[in-house]
Design a protein around this nucleic acid. Structure first.
Lengths: 158, 158
DNA sequence: ACTGAACATTTCAATACGGAGATAAATCCG
DNA sequence: CGGATTTATCTCCGTATTGAAATGTTCAGT
């Protein structure tokens, strides 16, 4: 009688809920660790994400960075403003489309992310080392499947 | 020349980073969906989490709710304040320890969460239905392993 | 060329949440 | 018993983030 409604949950739903809880917790734990790591350099995870995206993909349109880093359109402006103020990135007008503009690392920004990325990657690697390589790949494959299904079918029921 | 540093990443680190990206994205997508669902009832996910915890476990000390819902100490006060203002939960003094107090659902709160929980659970179930039951269990098992390792070993390197 | 719709980005106000220190109660130890 | 330490919660402030409306741009149709 201590679990009033849980008993009314069918197995499939219970399984889904359990997965959701575990997924949330694991992500929160890792995020916390990652956040602490980048905080040493006075960065938020979102800021780090922008730098990393530019580092690995080169200059991108603001909208691309936005989609890649999963922040709102207002958020990307804020982030780029902050990083610009620190001299790590810069805006460049897009010649083809004057509505848009590129965001690119400055030389300082490149040096900076180049120096801190490996440490951060090492932290993530250590965190994930709780799983064997094969397990990591299995998890990634399943989560990718899950994530893709959500982007393809935003609203199904009705 | 378009991927300046990625080539310098060893396979194990690359695997870990890839998993981290996929994990973040999947969680963000599901969180977004879950957030939209509870927003219909003018709740944040954190508020829903508090209600759900109390619903399934009965009255708990504020600190327990905090640990379970992964918010800060300041956050739990804020959440309980808001839910109290809406008449959904109430604080009850703890007879044994006057510093502490229980947080419990009011009758209204119980009715409320009872009426909305199944819908929310159904949303989660639908989201997770992209994975077969066995896949869900595998994912949950691996993520649990990952999450546990983090709580047990907060700081390893040094 | 002119109108209006779609689009990329920015501005702006609102807010949920985290974190440090304060408060108050319980516990421990001499 | 009385002072020190730990524990549970709250208050206060900062701030990252979102969502809506505004701004300026492109493009299709006529």
């Amino acid at each position: 009688m201590t679990a009033p409604a849980a008993s009314a949950i069918d197995p499939a739903t219970g399984r889904a809920l359990k997965l959701w809880v575990v997924l949330s917790r694991a992500t929160a734990s890792i995020e916390k660790r990652a956040r602490e790591d980048v905080a040493r350099h006075d960065l938020t995870l979102a800021e780090f994400g922008v730098l990393e995206a530019l580092y690995h993909k080169g200059p991108m349109l603001a909208g691309e960075v936005q989609r890649r880093t999963l922040v709102s359109s207002g958020g990307i402006t804020y982030l780029v403003d902050r990083l610009t103020a620190r001299g790590l990135v810069e805006r460049r007008p897009c010649p083809d489309d004057r509505r848009a503009n590129y965001v690119a690392l400055t030389p300082e920004g490149t040096t900076f992310i180049h120096s801190i990325f490996p440490e951060h990657a090492a932290v993530i690697a250590e965190v994930m080392s709780a799983l064997a390589p094969e397990e990591q790949e299995t998890t990634a494959r399943l989560l990718r499947k899950l994530g893709l299904s959500l982007r393809q079918a935003p609203e199904t029921s009705g």
